[in-house]
Amino acid sequence: MTDATLHEAYDSALPGEAQFGDYLALLKPRVMSLVVFTALVGLIVAPGSMHPIEAFASVLFIAIGGGASGALNMWWDSDIDAVMKRTQGRPIPSGRVGRDEALAIGLALSGFSVVMLGLAANAAAAAGLAFTIFFYVVVYSMWLKRSTPQNIVIGGAAGAFPPMIGWIAATGTLSIEPVLMFLLIFMWTPPHFWALALFMRSDYDDAGVPMLTVTHGRRKTRAHILAYTLLLCPVALALAFSPVGGPATLATAILCNAWFVKGAVTLWRRDEEIAAADGYKAEKSVFRFSLLYTFAHFGALLVDAALRTGGLI
């Protein structure tokens, strides 16, 4: 074999060699941003104090654990990612990262993040992170996602664990406040994803993912969005009246939930003809607002924590 044939073999074997950014994309950085923010809030509003370096390391390892589960999700779902327009550009379906690479990175970072969180914070937080990765990869990705239209409802728990892990990292224990933070994200996830499913119609159909829109129809999906949005209101208000809440959280809960319910009622009243005619404008609007919803609530918790520290409440 000559040098030239070596080059040809190399070039043909690796047509799209991964760059560093491709490996970062494998960790779902946009999802990680929510994980980082909610875990950080859970850690900051928790009673007691943590050294800033320990707090930084804890949030970093929680984020890496979240990223690892994202890589394992991409490994498992690479077949349906290749079908859906929204996910076709991801590193595996686009051929930039191999499936085996994604699996190796996901497993390695999972073990790494759990062990390091245990060393930086405590064993309970590490156990919580390990369970979260297991829940997202095995319970949601491998089991629920392709088998039940309730995939988003139960699978949403995986995204709701980070503030609880942040709290446990700071205190070593669990109480009602982190459970309310968990419930806020848990109840928010279904209307958030169902609003997306309403205007990404063909994607889920083509991939054969049993989203509620596919199995029960779009009318029922609109009703479900309204039901979950109404159930979300008491959770947000309970969080506002909990020891970590305050005036900022209460004001945010009232305004955001009023807006969210108004949007959900609008979606419920619309039918497919009207929605298709205006390019699913209201559905897209509710989806965009739902992104703001969680950031606003957890931001308000931070504001109340600052007011409490300053002795203003």
Binding site: T2, D3, L6, H7, E17, A18, Q19, F20, G21
Partner: peptide, 20 residues
Amino acid sequence: MPINPTHPMHARRLSRNVGL
């Protein structure tokens, strides 16, 4: 064609190695 440090392979891997 000799393998030398200026092969495109090295340029492609630079960002990955620096990042790591």
